[in-house]
């Protein structure tokens, strides 16, 4: 076991983690943040996407001990029913959520994009979500939702 400290969704934690634990396991099992989804476990699908120190990463490809000292944002930290984030609202309004499995990762990819580039082109939006697979929507609705969110956020 190894003791690490990190900040998740604005809260500081000191946790004991197994050496072979991944960040996704820490978030889901130790902290109960089940909005972090596990799909492929090998970096292909983006369902496990979180924002780590301002950048999107696949939490299935980060070891928990590597996250020592970092700040992590998961979908739970972005907003909830009472405090919904404009990107989440846009996904609902446009109908960009079907089964919802890809949605947390998509929304976090959108958030990381809009934080850096508040007025992205459609091409830039598509590039930003290129590491996130969706089996349901065919992506157009998702792109529209992010485009709408950017107008609201500006």
């Amino acid at each position: 076991m190894k003791k690490i400290s990190l900040n998740v969704n604005g809260k500081d934690h000191i946790l004991e983690v197994e050496e072979d634990m991944r960040l996704i396991d820490l978030l889901r099992e130790k902290l109960g943040l089940t909005g972090v989804k596990e799909g492929c476990s090998e970096g292909e699908c983006g369902a496990c996407t979180v924002i780590m120190d301002g950048e999107v990463v696949n939490s299935c490809l980060v070891m928990a001990f590597q996250a020592e000292g970092s700040s992590i944002l998961t979908i739970e930290g972005l907003g909830d029913e009472e405090n919904i984030h404009p990107i989440q609202q846009a996904f609902i309004d446009v109908g960009a959520v079907q089964c919802g499995y890809c949605t947390p990762g998509m929304i976090l990819a959108a958030k990381a994009l809009l934080d850096k580039n508040p007025n992205p082109t459609e091409e830039e939006i598509r590039e930003a979500i290129s590491g996130n697979l969706c089996r349901c929507t065919g992506y157009n609705k998702i792109v529209q939702a992010i485009d709408r969110a950017k107008e609201v956020l500006r």
Binding site: T49, N58, A109
Partner: peptide, 8 residues
């Protein structure tokens, strides 16, 4: 790869 892979 993807933004996630390029970031790591």
């Amino acid at each position: 790869g993807s933004p996630q892979i390029r970031n790591r």
